[in-house]
Design a protein around this nucleic acid. Structure first.
Lengths: 267, 267
DNA sequence: TGTTGACCCTCACGCGGCGTGAGGCTGGAT
DNA sequence: ATCCAGCCTCACGCCGCGTGAGGGTCAACA
């Protein structure tokens, strides 16, 4: 009924470019109904329909090489594919929401600048509580720790809001990754988790502006466990996450302590 | 304080690959603090901080070549950039939500198959209303239209649920694009709008399984305007969209009629 | 002292989904 | 006969790296 369509015509009514049609021909996704002796491509109704289904899936973000197979599938399978794809889209949506959240917090941090920087860095904990944590750390680790804290503070106030925001975003990402590992019940002694923990330790070291030796890291883990605020914060991210995190931190510290001492005094 | 870092070390604590660091060096986004006589890259604290800010923006989806400039900006500008980026993310999120919606409707359509196909194709209008529209069309266009409708129906029932879903998705996209043009108050006689309308006409032609001559297209526009259901449907998409769409359709039909007749009888 | 083995380097191609020419036919209207 | 629009086939470019190949370097252990 509908006459033959040239590339340009098909492109016009389907909203893609001519190049796209040629590309789809190249990769075998959409072949013309007929190719003239002059090499011209001619498309019919069937091709238009197929193209529309292709564009449907492309819109959903399915890679072209998968679309080919998809179009052959029927009924149940199709639904399965769509459902799986739906999940991907939802995950992507959740990620976007998180990013937007991050931006909002960053902007707030930039606006609040000096007044918020410290409070923000301890992530919503009140200043009195901060003092309490610092007192605890000093009591446990002695006078040198007091100096470290003072130094860290000074550096913190000197750093720009953007640097702080970036650092915080990093921490959050790390925590989220670790929480995911926790939810999936991945062994905290596994290499994957250990790598994340190593990054966490490096983050802490950067905050302190000095290396974070295994003992100090273990101490930090203890701090997390012994203060309900921290526990609550981590439990809010995922149930059981506080214990999981602490366990992973201690496992890592133990391994790091071993390799460090074995390096210093072999045997 | 924190000693120099090799590529691998920086990669480990920042969570990127070594290749990525080299790439950032190549494109001048993150240069090492120092390059040894042996060609080794060494990074310091400043580079770690810069890298974290880079990764922060990368996470947000900012292309690398823009990040370079971004890092130089300060205060207000930064906020502006972040806000603009926030908008992009929100738009992307809205798009994802739409896609998910499309999938849901597609699945519903596949599951409902024969029972839903017809009703679905007229997009939620009841069967009685459909009959009314068809009666209206027949009354206006005479007996041939009845045959067209019957034929169209038969073909419709024969087509697969996926084809129908794809066609519907296409229609929705077109309508959304046109609605956006309406919101932005773009001249319905402009080429951009005309291209969209041309695709709309092609879509209609595909549905009818026969060409849609300008007069028929004008008739369809009249149908849209004279039935409150259509008007309501379009007004729900965007205020003033019903009139806008009809106007664009008639402008297109007039132009198409002219070129068609001028082709048939020149002068 | 030499030998591992883990690291480091520089090319350089590949991917996905086309955009964007260059350079050259073809087809229909004048 | 001439024009121009439309068709064709290469073939390189983009982005953000992954993934080798092929070869130097460094620290630790025998």
């Amino acid at each position: 009924m509908i006459k033959e369509l040239t590339v340009k015509q098909l492109a016009a009514i389907s909203g893609v470019t001519v190049r796209t049609l040629r590309h789809y021909d190249e990769i075998g996704l959409l072949k013309p109904a007929r190719v003239g002796a002059n090499g011209y491509r001619y498309y019919g109704r069937a091709e238009l329909l197929r193209l529309q289904r292709i564009l449907f899936h492309r819109e959903l973000g399915v890679p072209l090489n998968e679309i080919g197979g998809l179009l052959e599938l029927e009924g149940e399978d199709q639904v399965g594919v769509l459902l799986r794809h739906r999940q991907k889209l939802e995950a992507e949506g959740a990620r976007l929401a998180e990013l937007i959240d991050t931006i909002d917090r960053t902007i707030a941090s930039i606006n609040g600048e000096t007044t918020m920087s410290n409070a923000d860095l301890y992530k919503g904990f009140s200043t009195e509580k901060q003092a309490a944590y610092e007192a605890w750390l000093i009591q446990r680790h002695g006078e040198p720790m007091r100096q470290d804290i003072t130094r860290s503070r000074r550096r913190l106030d000197a750093s720009t809001a953007q640097e702080q925001a970036a650092a915080m975003a990093q921490l959050q990402q790390l925590e989220e990754s670790l929480a995911e590992a926790c939810r999936r019940d991945i062994d905290p002694a596994s290499t994957a988790v250990d790598e994340l923990i190593a990054r966490h330790r490096a983050w802490v070291a950067m905050m302190w502006d000095k290396p974070c030796p295994p003992e100090a890291y273990t101490g930090l883990a203890d701090l997390y466990l012994s203060h309900p605020d921290f526990v609550a914060r981590y439990e809010r991210i995922a149930p059981g996450f506080a214990e999981y995190l602490v366990r992973a931190m201690k496992i890592h510290a133990a391994a790091a302590g071993f390799t460090a001492s074995s390096r210093l005094s072999p045997g």
